[in-house]
């Protein structure tokens, strides 16, 4: 078995393959480190220097070289089939995806909430139903988000929250949110939405005072995070429809379920 061949060796950096003959390496900034089946000279890459070239594992059928080399990226891009894919900003994605008329969206959502109120009668039940609907959306939406934003695995929950606020909200709702009020261990924060297209024409009547009109959003976040193995609890702290000056969502990380193999027999 060639060492790590065909697998990503390190989280940061990018896996490169140049055609069939070569092989792989990792780019971090301007250095390319990794294990190659051929020496850098044989790779025919525009290498400006090969400071630490040494055979890595002579016992394997193919000699592997472990080396760190500096690369000139301007020349490199033409020769390498897979350029590193940079994460895209929320604005860039929003500009590229198909959009619908905002009013149509707002009014459709309004009609759904109205219908739920008629069907379920209890405001509490409507809150629950909206959350469930959001959850069902979230577990599907996460894949679209990952596919189109090119974001890679987040290092910690703080990064996750930032990505939701800056890229996620922008991509799907066209607004950006900010993240504040982190607790000491970094598992609970507040996402503040100053602009919310869902509520453009909404005034809550007295009969619906307990309604969390935008409860679908909290469900979406909960569902989406669950699919990337984070159990969360998402609650509304402040709601402009109830007279507050912003929308505030509290996102609390309950449990991070690591994807571990093999699954234990008793699970």
């Amino acid at each position: 078995m060639t060492f790590g061949y065909g697998t990503r060796l390190r989280r940061r950096g990018y896996l490169l393959r140049c055609g069939r003959q070569v092989e792989m390496g990792l780019i971090s900034k301007k250095k390319w480190t990794g294990f190659f089946r051929k020496s850098p000279q044989q790779l025919r890459l525009p290498l400006s220097s090969c400071p630490s070239l040494k055979p890595f594992r002579a016992s394997s059928p193919t000699l592997l070289y472990n080396c760190t080399v500096s690369l000139d990226f301007s020349q490199l891009s033409a020769q390498i089939s897979m350029a590193p894919v940079a994460p895209r900003s929320g604005d860039a994605i929003f500009a590229n995806v198909e959009r619908v008329n905002a009013e149509l969206f707002t009014l459709t959502y309004g009609a759904i909430v109205r219908q739920l109120l008629t069907d379920l009668e209890e405001v509490e039940e409507v809150n629950k139903q909206l959350d469930q609907m959001g959850y069902n959306i979230g577990i599907r939406l996460i894949d679209e988000f990952l596919a189109k934003s090119n974001v890679s695995r987040c290092v910690d929950f703080k990064e996750t929250a930032e990505v939701i606020a800056k890229v996620g909200f922008k991509m799907f709702l066209g607004v950006t949110a900010s993240v504040t009020n982190w607790d000491a261990d970094g598992t609970c924060c507040i996402i503040v939405l100053e602009d919310n297209p869902l509520v453009d024409f909404v005034e809550l009547p007295d009969t619906c005072q307990g309604l969390y009109y935008c409860n679908v959003l909290s469900g979406v976040i909960r569902g989406a995070l669950e699919m990337v193995s984070m159990k969360t609890e998402v609650t509304w702290l402040r709601d402009m429809l109830r007279g507050d000056d912003a929308f505030e969502l509290q996102v609390k990380l309950l449990k991070q379920v690591a994807e571990e193999y093999p699954y234990k027999d008793d699970e």
Binding site: F3, G4, T7, R8, L9, R10
Partner: peptide
């Protein structure tokens, strides 16, 4: 994989 955080065969 000898390196942690490996995402499997590509």
């Amino acid at each position: 994989s000898p390196i942690s955080g490996c995402s499997g065969i590509e």
